[in-house]
Design a protein around this nucleic acid. Sequence first.
DNA 1: CGGGACTTTGAGCTTTCTCAACGATGGTGG
DNA 2: CCACCATCGTTGAGAAAGCTCAAAGTCCCG
Lengths: 259, 259
Amino acid sequence: MADLHLHERPLFKDLAHQASAAKCMDCGARHVGLCDALCDFDMQTLAGAVQRLTLPPGKILVEEGTPALHFYNITAGTVRLFKALPDGRRQITGFMGAGHLLGLKVSGPAAEPGHYVFSAEAIGEVHICRFTRASLLPKLTQFPALERKLLDVATHELMAAHEQMLLLGRKTAIERVASFLLAWADRMALFPDGIPEGKLTLDLPMNRMDLADYLGVTIETISRALGQLKKRGLIELPHIHEVVLLAPRKLAALAEAVS
Amino acid sequence: MADLHLHERPLFKDLAHQASAAKCMDCGARHVGLCDALCDFDMQTLAGAVQRLTLPPGKILVEEGTPALHFYNITAGTVRLFKALPDGRRQITGFMGAGHLLGLKVSGPAAEPGHYVFSAEAIGEVHICRFTRASLLPKLTQFPALERKLLDVATHELMAAHEQMLLLGRKTAIERVASFLLAWADRMALFPDGIPEGKLTLDLPMNRMDLADYLGVTIETISRALGQLKKRGLIELPHIHEVVLLAPRKLAALAEAVS
DNA sequence: CGGGACTTTGAGCTTTCTCAACGATGGTGG
DNA sequence: CCACCATCGTTGAGAAAGCTCAAAGTCCCG
């Protein structure tokens, strides 16, 4: 509703500070992800268990049903999370960007091994920081602040998930697309003071197929809905991966079926 | 997939033990909800801030957008959680039963006041144990075990939410109903050793409208899907609020689109 | 026994999907 | 530098799943 624009926002946006010494200390996501909750001393001990990796487009990070061995902290790029049915139908459950932690949701209690309950693939090139679950989980009990942060993250994702259920269960195609564009703009921190009146440019790293599988429709429907929004003067599409919101407020009214 | 039947299960099922002294000590949900994580001593201090209430059918516990003042621990009955659009469309995001904690998801960081992001109503008569967020939140920092339990709960709900997204975004009406029946059976702890071969009776406290709004279809579609399942010999409908699963395995194959 | 709320069933309609063709775009090699 | 090719996106026409509207059937409760 009124605070739709709050939902998909990543929890941490301050990329400013930079340390300099060890692997973790000069990480771009140092003050973005949960690493912030580990004190510097402990960061040193964690750094030993950490791998920084660069993944090519399409690279599979996580496959549903495989043993959950790692956490992934995304430092650059975008990842799609999804679940699939045996006949190939796919539902993308979220897009994760810099500062997001991957691997929280596994079957069984959080403290036990378990298996991943989703798959994850890189969209475009992705930089991640990977560490074993075994190395982080003990830290949880040691640093309550870390657990608190994980709880905040989980709670936040839960709210976004419920908003998405409303979208998938009850919104029309065009409302879904409008809602997505606004949520994406908000997540990119483009709404510091609420939804603005004027125009606003968005970069969409994902392709139409991803969008379709995220919004529970087909690529043709995505294409037609975007066309419709363009025809109504609500957006422009300068490039395939770029959308200009011409009237964000009107888009919001459409997304929430106000009027 | 294979572990669909794991998802909707409440975390705690052992209703056996009974204490006897104070308000909390003889609570039926004492070893079911998160109270288990508070030591007995602290339970006493919490008991002072607790109200046990009995709610009539249809009673609104929580209204979306209002300040989040309380946590609710459900001790008996079933509650529907939902989000609604201004024009009245409604999406039920979950059904909560005995042992479930309500009020975790609010806007803003978990430690701040914030507002509820969902509404909640009693289905049938519901018994709850209500306490203020203000009284519980300090306990979080004090008892890390409590925070851990909340994290487990949130993680578990997140998995269920993602499973539901797959259902809402990609499954047909009949697959949705089949999936729901299995998830509900599992949640009622009827699958201790996986999905059985033989028949199995379920009580459905909610009406068709609730089912429809949970599964993202209309009541007519629910009715037709149940009729279809009956015609195929997969279920029986002795009463409106009772379903007999005649062939749970076949139902599971249908729910996951296997074959 | 009657009334209201809920459920089922039926008929026609709408939205979205499917299938197919066409168009754009970006990368590659000549 | 351009032409070609593969991939991705758009557009159109017909089909289908599910929705809407309407009527009849059930069930519960007083």
